[in-house]
């Protein structure tokens, strides 16, 4: 088994009215599926990119680090036997069907503290 990070990208600047109906429910179902199958190691959903603050050297600026059409909206770490299996899980991610996309990267190493994520 290997671990893969699934970086979830969503369109930047999505207005409240543009949110695809049922998007959150779809993400919740996908999350449940990954828990049930035992593939999920960790998952985090992030607040919108306009809440981000970038730090480079001594400079602190507003906004995400890279100005792009898509921004990181969350990250999941999964366990899979090989890349094809990881891609099958990634393809089921609702972000891929909601105008965004996901990036699958092999995990080199990591650490998770035994403590719940922020509510």
């Amino acid at each position: 088994m290997a671990q893969y990070a699934i970086l979830i990208y969503a369109k930047a600047d999505v207005e409240e009215g543009e949110v695809v109906p049922g998007a959150r429910e779809a993400h919740d179902r996908h999350f449940e599926d990954m828990v049930q199958s035992g593939a999920l190691v960790a998952a985090f959903a992030l607040h919108p990119a306009d809440t981000a603050t970038a730090v480079r050297g001594d400079t602190v600026t507003d906004g995400p680090f890279i100005d792009a059409k898509e921004v990181v909206a969350g990250v999941a770490v999964i366990e899979a036997p090989d890349l094809d299996a990881a891609l099958a899980i990634a393809q089921a991610n609702p972000a891929a069907q909601q105008g965004g996309g996901v990036e699958v990267r092999p995990v080199e190493g990591g650490y998770i503290a035994d403590r719940p994520a922020a509510a």
Partner: peptide, 14 residues
Amino acid sequence: ATARIPFRLPAAAE
């Protein structure tokens, strides 16, 4: 090697 692209035949769906 790093991303573990498997040395096998694709599944029917793929």
